[in-house]
Design a protein around this nucleic acid. Structure first.
Lengths: 113, 113
DNA sequence: CAAGCATTTGGCTATTTTGCCAAATAGAAA
DNA sequence: TTTCTATTTGGCAAAATAGCCAAATGCTTG
């Protein structure tokens, strides 16, 4: 650590880390898939596992990352666990990402010209 | 790789990875700070380095991650390089993150009761 | 209670990401 | 051209992440 941590960044470090926790949770193909799938409605771990085709323990861990970030809620019914989204704004969230990608594609296209 | 990759996830893997590239770029305290700072206007590498208090090479690498993701543009003037945001929607983007965090905080509060 | 199913957890390795230092570039000024 | 300043790049070691297997947990049913 620096001897003088009184810079603009250090003062906000904690807040920034809290925000990046949410972003990190979304920043993985499998977890992003899960979030988009849950936009359709709740899903159990087994359904997600089938769709993704990875080990169930892997999916379970991804779900716990999303849960830790406050993005999903789990609901145990019988011996199955259903997950659903807690926040609806994630959708608009991703629209922005899409905009970034499209703007980037246009940039590339104009460079080729 | 699985022998039968024809599942819902595999079919969209590439698209999902493109999206997570943008999310990953934002998912780091230092880079998030930079993005928020650039919302105020362009900044040179040295200014950001001073504000953050890390090695300049570290900041430079973070900036190249943001650039690779299509979030910022660099503009060399003299022997300084100024960076500015390419997409304005990142702001609303972060409002959603904030909403997630607040909803999570409320959840925690109600658990304590 | 025993057995079966869905899910989570522990543990381990492989991969990716970070951040520093030192060296390389590039423009500005002497 | 030499020197100085701002930035980037290469390289490496430390830290964080991912994904699999095996074992543990917790219902549910026989």
């Amino acid at each position: 650590m620096k001897t003088n941590p009184a810079n603009a960044f250090a003062l906000r470090k904690q807040q920034l880390s809290a925000r990046t926790k949410v972003l990190k949770a979304l920043a993985h193909p499998t977890r992003l898939f899960i979030v988009e799938e849950l936009e359709q409605g709740e899903r159990c771990v087994c359904e997600l596992t089938d769709m993704i085709g990875a080990d169930m323990s892997t999916i379970s861990k991804h779900l716990s990352v999303l849960k830790e970030a406050g993005l999903v809620i789990d609901d145990k019914r019988g011996n199955m666990v259903f997950y659903h989204l807690r926040v609806s704004c994630v959708l608009g969230f991703l629209d922005c990402v899409e905009k970034v990608l499209r703007s980037q594609a246009e940039e590339q296209a104009s460079l080729i010209k």
